[in-house]
């Protein structure tokens, strides 16, 4: 049973609002180690220089979108095991299916509640304490 407080998470989204919302929800779940990046490329640089357990990333971003980030992470051996949760808008079935192909661990539909985020996290990591 992993402790949420030990979880290192990187939030990647081009909107400060969304990053703050995710951060705020994660903090409510007890996650303390949270970093942020404003686009896929910045996120990739960050996750390479400072690996994390989990990347929560938006899909639609400039520079490198969420799928690109996911693929880059899976293609780079030192970090390819990083868990990845994709943030999506409603009804992005096609996107989710592509993300599955590339090895996404889970997805989270915006807008989300803290409970939904917890559920998605636990589906990946098991019950969080």
């Amino acid at each position: 049973m992993p402790a949420a407080s030990a979880l290192h998470v990187l939030i990647v989204d081009d909107q400060q609002t969304m990053r703050s919302l995710v951060r705020n929800s994660l903090q409510q779940l007890g996650v303390r180690e949270i970093t942020e990046a404003a686009d896929g490329e910045a996120g990739l640089r960050q996750v390479i220089s400072k690996p994390v357990h989990l990347v929560i990333s938006d899909f639609n971003m400039p520079n490198l979108d969420g799928l690109g980030l996911l693929r880059a992470i899976r293609a780079h051996p030192p970090i390819k095991t990083t868990a990845f949760i994709m943030l999506t808008g409603r009804a992005d079935r096609e996107l989710v299916q592509r993300a599955v192909q590339f090895g996404v661990n889970n997805y989270l539909v915006k807008p989300f509640t803290v409970a939904q985020l917890k559920e998605k996290l636990e589906a990946v990591f098991g019950p969080l304490t």
Partner: peptide, 14 residues
């Protein structure tokens, strides 16, 4: 809109 349930998505554990 497609309902979220229709995705048939299985979360992938770690």
């Amino acid at each position: 809109d497609e309902a979220e349930d229709d995705f048939g998505f299985q979360p992938v554990a770690f």
